[in-house]
Design a protein around this nucleic acid. Structure first.
Lengths: 217, 217
DNA sequence: GCCGGAATGTGAACGGTGTCAAGATAATCT
DNA sequence: AGATTATCTTGACACCGTTCACATTCCGGC
């Protein structure tokens, strides 16, 4: 599809009446605008313009502006989930798994700050978490699995939930606060933002505090 | 001023040409709308309407919509600061001081979620923190003082800063996450949101982990 | 006391936005 | 092929932030 678009552009050919895959194009355009021009520029009309389509066209694919943004956010959650899975997979052992999950979470949020903001916003007024935040391969499931792998009692459901929530809160907090300009000097002193993030996560200690008994592996 | 307004309304008297204290009225109106009707309804025109004034009037008191919102946020920070000071003052001893600061922070944010969001937003793109976040009586200063009172080494500036940031991150994270509808059952199981907040903060442990040597008091 | 400037209000206007209804165009199914 | 459905456009509406020219009021110097 991207080929066809490019070819059309190069040959000054007009876009056909039917776009082909507008909803995807709209999501991509939305994300591009959000990243490169900020949330203030993210208007439905701008997205339509970016996709080369009239301002009313999106309404055939999304019921709302909010609906489109929710779709953008949803892709974000998916990517974040994948990043977390990858990070856990690459961790040396279960103990480091939790650390790497937290770091991957923050890293993603900091690499796409506007997207992450949108993700959080839409997650806020949703009745439930997005579906892909619930199964085993999601961030939630990964944290839970890591906590188990690290020696937490699988029988104590409440404690397990609390630990998961706590870890999530910590990651969210760090992700949103570490960008403050105020912390510039501290970052520099530590040798970059990643170092500061690791230091704060370490300090928060959430990712290590459940390692009481040696992990089974 | 409120008296005069009420009297005027009751006697069907027209508002005098000059409002008297419009900028304050605008800030209050903004906050009221934000709280009661949500951020989407918070338009400059709506604020002006609420204050009984033309849409252009605010521009004599604030350069921007953003400028007004910044003023609203600033009052929020002030209140939050006061709440923290109060909480620390009421704590039984230094050790509980940190806990109570964290709890007060989250409590304020949860009692005024939209305001807190606005506060965070405006703090984000500010070059520095608002001034009242810097002196001794601010939240930052209070956390720092509590950490010192609890036995942290005053000479280790870096560690002190890290601990303060970590505490702040934790509080922010909890404040923003604990409202998720997903956690409704857990709240109920624990006996209310406050209990969940305390449990998470406990679990995060940031507020206790620096109590190594017995506090001097 | 008055008068002129500064402060504070109004109204109308501009371009931009989300959204919808009516009509045009293309793809698809029978 | 003809009818149905999906998709896109045009035009409109109300609302938004912002500005400009103008009106009203307050206040300090004569």
């Amino acid at each position: 599809m991207a080929h066809a678009e490019l070819a059309r552009e190069l040959t000054h050919e007009a876009r056909p009446y039917h776009h082909g895959d507008l909803s995807r194009a709209l999501i991509l355009a939305g994300r591009r605008i959000l990243e490169k021009e900020g949330p203030a520029a993210l208007s439905l009309r701008a997205v339509a313009r970016e996709a080369g389509v009239s301002p009313a066209a999106p309404y055939h694919h999304f019921k709302d502006k909010g609906d489109l943004l929710a779709a953008v956010a949803s892709e974000g959650w998916q990517e974040l989930g994948e990043a977390i899975v990858k990070a856990r997979g690459e961790a040396a052992d279960a103990r480091h798994g939790l650390n790497e999950i937290g770091f991957a979470y923050v890293t993603f949020a900091r690499a796409n700050p506007n997207l992450y903001r949108l993700m959080y916003d839409t997650a806020c007024d949703q009745e439930d978490m997005p579906d892909h935040a619930k199964d085993e391969s999601s961030g939630w499931g990964q944290v839970r699995a890591s906590l188990l792998a690290v020696g937490m009692d699988p029988g104590n459901e409440l404690e397990l939930k609390l630990a998961t929530i706590a870890a999530w809160c910590a990651a969210h907090g760090v992700a949103e606060m570490v960008g403050f300009k105020e912390f510039g000097p501290l970052k520099q002193a530590l040798g970059g933002e990643a170092a500061l993030v690791r230091a704060i996560l370490d300090h928060l200690g959430i990712y290590a505090r459940h390692v009481r008994h040696e992990p089974s592996a």
